[in-house]
């Protein structure tokens, strides 16, 4: 597989061009609306938070963007290429090199029967890496970056704690240096101290690697820390969007005001 060693090097990108352009994205489940008429641009290095209550269409939107579901209407362009017209081969190749998807439950994103090193190395092998020593070296390097000790490289994820599994999933996704990362509630189900460490780690990685991130969550603290821009969804529609601090400190829409005021204060 002489695949796409070129694809890695083609990361030169004019920063004033949006990386992802979404226009009028609509997904219906029969007569019900999954998400309707969502439009936004995402620029390189930008973190977009999507918040909203359960059933507001956040996850539907994310899965449409990541290509797991096909939207009924609308347009998605990644790097100037029309995602909906793209062949499945190209789309799947893109999703294992240039994109990453971090699941809420690490068990969905990891191979539980395969060692940590194998999990991290899978994407490398999928794009044609065939040197065991180099694959392993890179896996150990990435485990280090997500604060997993190098001597755990041959342990299976089932022997890891929840927080470690989530960090392993992140390492596995970032090993091919993607440019766009989708995250679905990455801190869900973790206790607060572990959450804080994970957020710290994510913030560092996003800054160091210049990642563009779309992060779906219902935890406003997470978006406050990570996201540059924020989109608030309700009943499948975007009710408010803007800079994170602006939206959270001066919410305009009634639902956003409710959302912000519902956060429990310690």
């Amino acid at each position: 597989m002489s695949l796409h060693s070129t694809e890695f090097s083609q990361k030169v990108h004019a920063p004033d061009q949006p990386l992802l352009q979404v226009e009028g994205l609509t997904k219906r489940y029969g007569p019900r609306i999954g998400c309707a008429d969502v439009s936004f641009d995402l620029y390189p290095g930008e973190v977009l938070g999507i918040v909203g209550e359960s059933g507001s269409g956040k996850s539907t939107l994310l899965s449409c963007l990541a290509g797991h579901q096909r939207p009924d209407l609308g347009r998605i362009a990644y790097d100037g290429r029309d995602m909906l017209a793209m062949s499945e081969t190209d789309r799947r190749r893109l999703s294992r090199t240039d994109w990453a998807y971090v699941h809420q439950n690490p068990r969905d994103g990891l191979r539980m029967g395969v060692s940590a090193g194998g999990n991290v190395g899978e994407r490398l092998m999928a794009v044609g890496a065939r040197h065991y020593g180099q694959i392993r070296g890179k896996a150990v390097d990435w485990l280090g970056r997500v604060e997993i000790a190098a001597d755990r490289v041959d342990d299976r994820p089932s022997a890891f704690s929840g927080g470690m599994q989530q960090r392993l999933q992140i390492a596995r996704n970032l090993v091919t240096s993607p440019r766009l990362v989708f995250m679905d509630e990455p801190t869900g189900g973790l206790d607060v101290s572990v959450q804080a460490r994970l957020l710290d780690l994510l913030r560092g990685l996003v800054r160091d690697l210049g990642l563009s991130v779309i992060i779906v969550t219902h935890d406003l603290a997470v978006v406050r820390l990570l996201a540059h821009r924020l989109m608030v969804m309700k009943s499948g529609r975007v009710v408010e969007q803007g800079l994170t601090d602006q939206v959270l400190d001066d919410p305009q829409h009634a639902y956003t005001q409710l959302l912000v005021s519902s956060v429990l204060q310690v």
């Binding site: 597989m1 081969t89 194998g118 899978e122 092998m125 999928a126 065991y132 041959d154």
Partner: peptide, 18 residues
Amino acid sequence: ELEEYGLMHVKLYEDIAR
């Protein structure tokens, strides 16, 4: 269909690692 055989090497990787 799409010639995605990286997973086959994951198995061999696991062999060597173990």
